[in-house]
Simulated assay, not measured.
Amino acid sequence: MPRHNERKYRAVSALQRRIGNPILRRLPFQTLLETTGRTSGLPRPTPVGGRRVGDSFWLVSEFGERSQYVRNIKADPRVRVRLRGRWHTGTAHLLPDDDPIARLRGLPRMNSTAVRAMGSGLLTVRVDLDG
């Protein structure tokens, strides 16, 4: 990873971990992706932006396979997604062959803009929601 991208990753990750995520997780209608910690086995809720399309929820990980929730998905793809205050179970799929920039065009504009500006190594994630 180029040095600029590494600095960006460290800065954005620290900001999200210490300030953004703790605040956003508390907002009742913030969309959350809950994975199972690959080491701890504990639930790990992460604020995300994305969109439900039919029985799937789509999002783009701003740091791809470096994101902790993506690493958790690789270990256990069973997840929960909180949409509009309601939890849904599902199975997450990492889609490295999908075009994440094109995918972002169909997702909420504010989040998509932030992901493009702050991210590197983007990765599309689809969650197939259960019933």
Rank of each mutant, 00 (worst) to 15 (best):
G64N: 14
R10E: 15
P22H: 14
S112K: 00
G119A: 06
I19R: 07
S61G: 14
D97E: 15
I101S: 07
R105Q: 15
R52G: 08
V81D: 07
W58L: 14
L42I: 07
V127M: 12
I73R: 03
R66W: 13
G50Q: 03
A114T: 08
G90L: 02
S13C: 06
L107P: 05
L32V: 08
P28W: 01
R80T: 07
G41H: 09
V12F: 05
R17D: 15
L123A: 08
F29P: 00
P2D: 15
K8V: 04
T39C: 00
V48D: 04
V53P: 00
G49S: 15
H88R: 15
K74P: 00
N111P: 01
L104V: 03
L27Y: 04
L32N: 13
L123Y: 01
G20Q: 10
P100H: 03
R3I: 12
S40D: 15
G121W: 02
M110L: 11
S120Y: 07
T46I: 01
S56F: 03
I101Y: 11
Q16L: 13
V53A: 13
I101G: 00
D130C: 04
R80C: 11
G90Y: 02
V127D: 12
L122K: 02
D97T: 14
L32K: 07
D130N: 11
L129E: 12
T124M: 03
L107M: 12
R17V: 11
V53T: 06
F57Q: 04
V125F: 03
H93D: 11
F57I: 05
V115F: 02
L107A: 06
G64A: 08
P2T: 11
F63W: 14
V79F: 05
M118V: 05
P108N: 10
G54L: 10
R18P: 02
T35Q: 06
V48Y: 02
G41V: 09
P108V: 01
V81M: 05
V53Q: 10
A14K: 14
L122R: 08
